[in-house]
Nucleic acid binder design. Structure first.
Lengths: 158, 158
DNA sequence: GCAATACTGGACTTTTTGGTACAGATTCCC
DNA sequence: GGGAATCTGTACCAAAAAGTCCAGTATTGC
């Protein structure tokens, strides 16, 4: 269970855009410079994020990229899913099946139950976080603290 | 954030061993047959699990593999960490760093805070599950239900 | 002792993912 | 309208993960 390079770098690009002045846009070379990622790679990441609807692109001489919505309205979990997929996506079932039983509600599906459980735990955490929360954290409040505050209604496992 | 093939198949092998009679052992071909994984691949997975101390190997004609401890004493989270590593391992920090700031307690570390948060959410869930819990589930009780029961003390996010 | 059945470990091949290159299309500014 | 700066899309190369192969060692049963 590892996180992909696209998730790490893509989320960083989003945060860099979130730090920019509202309404302003950053070019690929600018983001590449700030995050020390190669230009082509930044371009690739932003393309994916654009397809997902999280950033908008302005073409032409004074173009660049900007967040599609305000930072407080962009969910971190959704962005990560766009960049790296989900742990337990639809169609996971079909890719593997054991001999004893097919894939109804038995045997090897106890394994899948674990994945579902993990997935929903991750979702519970990430669905509460927006890009804005991460910027707040940079200003001094730690993310765990912020999350604890946000999750007062209590996070159940399943 | 995907789970690796080793985690999926390795955990299945563990469950197959857990289903065997206490004290009995299964050979690689047997496990391969049951789980429809190739023999060499099963061998590789079990080698990793043996290094982790989760299974023991018996060599010779009537050899095979068996769980190193009782199913109720083998933690699912530990097994998965052995098979596929952790989301946020030590040394993650050194692999990436942004331009603006190094890697103290600022900037790009707000990203790392997210990973830490996800990691601890996953740990909270998996640290409560043993192989025996998954076998119980096969007998009728769903894993989410079982987990809910186990997590009565309430699962906080951080 | 000898043959059959196991596990063991390293090297190899295949597949997937990550990253790069380059030609093309769009917009702005003069 | 022309040129400069920008995004866009496909194809290509490199690195890592997944899976396979094979020669080797250990143990059992006859």
């Amino acid at each position: 269970m590892k996180l992909s390079a696209q998730e790490e770098y893509g989320l960083r690009c989003m945060l860099t855009l979130a730090r920019a002045e509202p309404g302003a846009s950053l070019t690929i070379p600018q983001i590449a410079e700030i995050e020390r990622i190669s230009g082509p790679n930044v371009a690739k990441l932003l393309r994916a994020l654009k397809r997902g609807g999280y950033v908008v692109a302005l073409r032409g001489q004074s173009g660049g990229y900007a967040l599609a919505r305000k930072a407080g309205e962009i969910n971190v979990g959704e962005v990560l899913a766009c960049l790296g997929g989900r742990i337990f996506d639809a169609g996971f079932c079909g890719r593997h099946s054991s001999a004893t039983r097919g894939c109804g509600h038995n045997s090897d599906c106890s394994v899948r139950s674990v994945w579902r459980l993990v997935q929903s735990a991750v979702d519970d955490v990430l669905s509460r976080l927006t890009l804005a929360d991460l910027l707040v954290e940079e200003a001094g409040v730690s993310v765990p603290e912020r999350a604890r505050r946000l999750s007062l209604p209590i996070v159940q496992v399943s």
